[in-house]
Simulated scan of single mutants.
Amino acid sequence: MKTHSEHAAYLANWLNQRITWLNDYYHSDAFTKGVFLDESDQEIDVKNVVIASALMFWGGSGTIDTNSPGFTAEASSGWWGGQAFSTGIMLQKGQTYRLSFDYTAPSTASINYRIQANHDSYTSYLNGSTSANGTTQSFEKEFTAGMTDFNCAIVLEFKGSGTVNVEHLSLVALDPEPVRGDVNGNGVWNLSDVIALQKWLLAVPDAKLEQWENGDFYADGRIDALDLCLMRQEILW
């Protein structure tokens, strides 16, 4: 059994190593270029927040596949059942997300899914259930966050009986579809965009285009007076 002093020494050594790693990383080329690394110096896919958060089990047992990420677990008929969850999930109000995973399970099992607050009353922001038929199936659900919460969890609960295999679990923030002609970046295309583009082309002081690519009506990778003419023609018609 470890003594208190041994535990304290271990923690102090870990903190020193962590501080050294962070100091080196924050001054590295990778960080300045927006490449984020995990504790093993492997690049993190920042569009898949689950990869950056460890999967855990509660109320049951299972084997975790850190490469998918995914896991294999046994379904349970108990009140709680077996659960796998990933914490440290951040939601932004108004942002649309896609929860998805592939799963294989017998028809005697089902999977309850939730994205919930990981604090206080564990408020559920998304919940539902998906059934199984013995073959490999794909689940996908999009939702828009109704509030900002930087401490959330993805929870999967396995009900019924049989072995459940889940792979490629991910929660991805979706980029909004660009609005053709919306050069001022307010989400709509109207005469204000024509005026904004005209001012920018005339080099009016403080004139700027938030999303110039939306005004590239000629589709030549640049924006000029021809695009303004095409924009005017199309919006007036």
Rank of each mutant, 00 (worst) to 15 (best):
G62F: 00
G81P: 11
I89P: 00
W14T: 07
L230Y: 12
C229D: 08
D149R: 00
Y103Q: 14
H119E: 12
Q211H: 12
A54H: 08
R114W: 06
V164K: 07
W80N: 04
Q233S: 10
V188R: 12
Y97D: 06
V179R: 01
G134R: 06
S107T: 14
C152E: 05
S86D: 07
H4T: 14
T66M: 04
P205V: 06
H27D: 09
Q233T: 12
S40H: 13
E140M: 15
D29V: 13
G162Q: 10
E140Y: 05
L15F: 05
D227A: 01
P178E: 02
Q17N: 15
V46S: 03
D41P: 07
F71S: 10
A145C: 03
W14M: 14
L22C: 08
L15S: 08
T20M: 03
E140Q: 15
P69V: 11
E177Y: 06
L236A: 04
G146T: 03
E6I: 07
G60R: 07
S110A: 14
A75Q: 08
G60D: 07
V50F: 09
N165G: 04
H4A: 11
V50I: 11
A54M: 14
F71H: 11
W21L: 07
N151L: 03
W237Y: 04
T20F: 02
M90G: 03
S170T: 10
E39P: 02
F85H: 13
N214V: 09
E43D: 03
Q211F: 13
Y122C: 08
Y25W: 05
K93W: 05
L11G: 10
S170N: 09
R114V: 05
T72W: 02
E39I: 13
D102W: 14
G88Y: 02
I111K: 09
W58L: 04
E167I: 10
S68K: 03
E142Y: 00
G162Y: 04
Q198P: 02
F150H: 13
S161V: 06
T136W: 04
A105F: 03
G162L: 04
D224I: 01
D102Y: 11
Q83F: 02
S28K: 02
M56R: 13
I115A: 07
